[in-house]
């Protein structure tokens, strides 16, 4: 049943701007770094060893990708839920023989999958930029994948939260404002907040220097928020 719901969800976003956003996010991030490297080539590239070049590039891409992910998840969640809000289509879907739980899970999964696509695109795009800049030597695929997926997993509480808020509120002003505030808070959370603050997790910074702690915490809390959102959605009357 979940597969059927997802296939229906993907059909509904056909020809929608969401796809443009999903692609524009990673492309924009890498393109900006391309300009950055182009303008400051001498400072960033000249005379450095290959490994440093790659790790520098990955770090620079992550620096922009994190806020893009944090605000992008709010936008994508709002757009996927907006399809139903705009045309008052919740009553259509929920009067069909599907569980409300599954409808909620469908919206969450759609949002999460679209963001996963965005994060995945970062990898080939970063590699392409590195090669275009003339970096040679072994491409550090491990680091590339880690930097694409760990922050994504650690941001899971926010994906679940935004999916919940966007689905539950017809007016998207509040969910999107919360998303924007979240992005800005997370950007400045790194050095200032204690480790337990979720806004810090996507940066994978913690006292034990173990990124997997942030990832685990993110996935766990993400699950909790998801279940809470689902419980609320199931109980609510449909407008």
């Amino acid at each position: 049943m979940m597969l059927r719901i997802l296939s229906s969800e993907f059909l509904k976003i056909r020809k929608k701007l969401i796809w443009l956003l999903v692609a524009a996010g990673p492309i924009g991030v890498v393109a900006l770094q391309a300009v950055n490297y182009g303008v400051r080539y001498d400072y960033l590239v000249a005379g450095k060893e290959t490994a440093k070049l790659w790790s520098g590039l990955i770090g620079n891409v992550s620096m922009l990708a994190l806020p893009a992910l944090m605000v992008g998840l709010a936008l994508v969640a709002s757009m996927t839920a907006g399809i139903e809000h705009q045309m008052n289509a919740w009553k259509l879907t929920l009067a069909l023989p599907v569980r409300k739980r599954q409808v909620f899970a469908g919206k969450f999964l759609l949002t999460a999958l679209l963001l996963l696509i965005s994060c995945t695109l970062l990898v080939p795009l970063t590699v392409a930029l590195g090669l275009a800049l003339g970096f040679d030597g072994p491409i550090p695929y491990g680091d590339l994948l880690t930097n694409a997926y760990y922050p994504y997993l650690a941001a899971m509480p926010f994906i679940a939260l935004q999916a919940w808020l966007s689905v539950t509120m017809a007016n998207q002003t509040l969910p999107l404002t919360i998303g924007i505030v979240g992005m800005i808070v997370s950007m400045f959370a790194g050095g200032r907040f204690p480790d337990w603050v979720p806004y810090k997790w996507p940066q994978l910074v913690n006292a034990s220097h173990e990124p997997l702690y942030s990832v685990t915490a993110g996935v766990a809390l993400g699950l909790v928020v998801f279940v809470a959102g689902m419980a609320e959605f199931v109980r609510k009357d449909v407008k």
Partner: peptide, 10 residues
């Protein structure tokens, strides 16, 4: 859509 202009904005 509410989110689309904001996406442009972001």
């Amino acid at each position: 859509s509410f989110a689309a202009p904001l996406a442009v904005n972001v």
